[in-house]
Amino acid sequence: MTDAMGIFDIMLALVLPWLGWRLLASPNLFRAVVLFISLGLLMSLAWVRLHAPDVALAEAAIGAGLTGALFLSALRRLERLRDSERRLDYAEKREEEQNLPPEKRRKSKPVAYVLALFLLSVFLLLLGGALLKTPVAPGRLGPAVAGQMGQSGVQSRVTAVLLNFRGYDTLLEVMVLFLAALGVWSLTRVRQTPQEKVPGPVLATLVRLLVPLMITVAGYLVWIGSSRAGGAFQGGAVLAAAGVLLLLANVTVVRQIPSTLLRWALVLGPLLFLLSAVACMSIGGNLLEYPRQSAGSWILLIESATAVSIGVTLAALYAGGRPHEPAAREAIVDKSADTKVKNGEGA
């Protein structure tokens, strides 16, 4: 049995870099995205083999699933652009170049290659030097974490590190996601699918069947995170997947969610995390030093709130813009009214 697993591990170790190379070298963007998704799925298998189920779950849900969906939606937008701007199609350009007569083709410059090689070796030397200079940690961190588990408030070591011992890092990660959503929202409005575009019966049934199940699974993942693999990021990713499914099916309810509610859902996690971090200080501890007896409840509260926010944030990233205000929505329906209002203001 161990031999078979060894062969499997070796195959995995060989296939992963090969897939990575294929996806980077692929001139066809759609193929690259498909390869990226398969890379993510195989990567999560590798994490399972490394006995890191938490990372495997996150990789499969966020790395392969949601990032893949984000890439696909970005690709669809690119294709709309492509009719006017053909510059993006690298493969086509290369083909054109190959059809040119030899004297017109772009010459490769040896100086550029030498310079690139030089810079690369300097970088590698610096990196290697930094690695060699780094002092070896006096002990392994695993036993240190195991020794402190009693005061973490949870049974899962991963959750203890993420939400308690190194809670500061997680707080910053949650903020980064929040900033990403803010960035997307400030750039553009969400593109509205016409209301009459209803999903087919199969997709509609699938959504009706899967979305409640996905919400249950998300709750389960957050809850189980205190003792086993799971947690806010995994639960949030599943929530986001439910959101993506709803967006894809163009369900009416999603479009009718008031944008105020969306904004609060987006802020809920980061805000609660930040407030509890500061509250710990006012109680008498350091930043994010939860009171010992109730640490478990603090962590569960923070995780539940961040899971909701992570789910909404990732789904909002997929939607790709800020929601329309109710007033603006009506304006789209009745464009003439909109111009009338503007004219009135002008006068």
Binding site: G200, V202, L203, L206, L209, L210
Partner: peptide, 16 residues
């Protein structure tokens, strides 16, 4: 069951 539902539904969607 979940794989059955997901794979048959996505097969249908891709074919459509």
């Amino acid at each position: 069951l979940l794989v059955l539902v997901a794979s048959s539904a996505s097969c249908h969607l891709v074919a459509r």
